[in-house]
């Protein structure tokens, strides 16, 4: 046997990978986690977009600059981004309303009653779970319908 060294303990924090790579940690029966990740990603996109948006709006006062910018929007990539942005706003808003009820007002997560076997968590089977499915459903419908309307105007479909 080799010489013994000073023991080193392993920092085993999952980091960001634990959040976004689905197979690092597989928590069962937990769509709230998917909503959390999506809420965060859409939120990040929106806060990055906000200063850009304000800068772009400031161009409107100058007719020439605004014409140049509008020409940029002819780019298919910009048009596609517009659709992604629309989806982000819709998801972040809908899920945000659910989170406002759950986090801000403590609604939809059941009452803290004594647990009974098989120890199902109340908060994950209460009304907020139904709201969550509604959020996903409405989001996808609005996003897809919005996409069809938008891309029809842009001449994609």
């Amino acid at each position: 046997m080799g010489e013994k060294r000073k023991p080193r303990f392993l920092e085993n924090r999952l980091g960001i990978m634990g959040n976004i790579v689905p197979w690092v940690l597989m928590i069962r029966d937990n769509p709230e986690r998917v909503a959390f990740v999506l809420h965060r990603l859409t939120g990040l996109l929106l806060i990055i977009y906000l200063p850009v948006h304000i800068f772009v709006t400031s161009m409107t006062v100058n007719p020439q600059k605004w014409e140049d910018f509008l020409r940029l929007e002819e780019n298919p990539l910009a048009q596609f981004f517009l659709w992604i942005l629309f989806g982000s706003i819709v998801f972040h808003g809908l899920n945000g309303i659910r989170l406002l009820l759950v986090e801000g007002l403590g609604k939809g997560i059941g009452k803290p009653e004594p647990p009974e076997p098989p120890y199902k968590p109340t908060s994950l089977s209460s009304a907020q779970r139904k709201w969550l499915y509604a959020v996903f459903a409405i989001w996808l419908i609005v996003w897809i319908v919005g996409g069809i309307i938008l891309f029809r105007e842009f001449g994609w479909v």
Binding site: L25, I27, R28, D29, N30, E32, R33, A35, F36, V37, H39, R40, L99, V102, E103, G104, L105, G106, I109, G110, P112, P115, E116, P117, Y119, K120, P121, T122, S123, L124
Partner: peptide, 28 residues
Amino acid sequence: HFAGSCSAACPKGVDPAQGIQLLRSKLV
């Protein structure tokens, strides 16, 4: 941010996610 994974993993039905949301709404 109410990912709810804590409650999904809890073996004793403690439901920490619920407790945290109730604590937070109380604070709000």
